[in-house]
Lab assay of single mutants.
Amino acid sequence: SKTSNTIRVFLPNKQRTVVNVRNGMSLHDCLMKALKVRG
């Protein structure tokens, strides 16, 4: 089974995003990807 960790990230202006960290990806990469999608 694939394991994925879901991390809630609290952003300024009362924004919130959820990042799924996959195996083999660093938290930083996942964060940058999530913020790019939002931006």
Rank of each mutant, 00 (worst) to 15 (best):
R8H: 04
N20I: 15
Q15E: 14
C30F: 06
H28R: 11
R16P: 01
T17P: 01
N23S: 12
D29Y: 09
T17N: 03
R38S: 02
S4G: 11
K36Q: 08
V21A: 12
M32T: 12
N20T: 11
H28C: 14
R38C: 00
S26T: 14
T3P: 15
D29E: 08
K2Q: 15
M25L: 15
L11R: 01
G24Y: 06
N13T: 05
I7M: 07
S26R: 08
T3N: 10
R22D: 03
M25E: 08
T6K: 04
L31A: 06
L31T: 06
R38G: 02
L11Q: 00
N20D: 04
V19I: 13
D29A: 11
A34T: 03
K2N: 10
V37G: 01
T17S: 14
L11P: 00
S26D: 03
G39C: 08
Q15L: 01
V9G: 00
T6L: 09
F10Y: 10
K36T: 07
S26N: 08
T3A: 15
N5S: 15
K36M: 12
N20K: 15
M25T: 14
L27Q: 00
V9A: 14
R22L: 10
N5G: 06
N13C: 06
K36R: 12
A34E: 04
R16C: 04
F10T: 06
N13G: 05
D29N: 13
L27K: 04
D29G: 11
N5V: 09
K33E: 02
S1T: 13
R8G: 03
T6S: 09
L11V: 02
Q15K: 04
V19D: 00
M32A: 09
K14E: 09
S4T: 15
V21M: 03
M25V: 15
R8S: 03
K33G: 03
P12A: 02
T6P: 05
L11M: 05
K33R: 08
N23I: 09
K2M: 13
V37A: 05
K33D: 04
K2V: 10
L35P: 00
L27V: 15
V19E: 06
K2R: 11
K36S: 09
Q15H: 00
K33L: 06
S4C: 12
K14R: 08
G39V: 04
T17R: 06
K2E: 07
R38P: 02
S4R: 15
N23C: 15
V21L: 07
N13S: 08
V9M: 01
D29R: 09
F10C: 03
R22S: 07
A34V: 02
C30R: 02
S4D: 15
C30S: 13
A34P: 10
L31R: 00
N23Y: 11
K36I: 08
P12M: 06
V9E: 00
K33T: 02
S1R: 13
S1Q: 15
S26I: 11
G24D: 11
S1H: 14
M32I: 10
R16S: 03
K36E: 04
I7P: 04
M32V: 11
M25K: 15
V18L: 03
S26H: 06
V18T: 06
A34S: 11
N23D: 12
K14Q: 07
I7D: 06
P12T: 02
G39D: 14
V19G: 01
K33I: 00
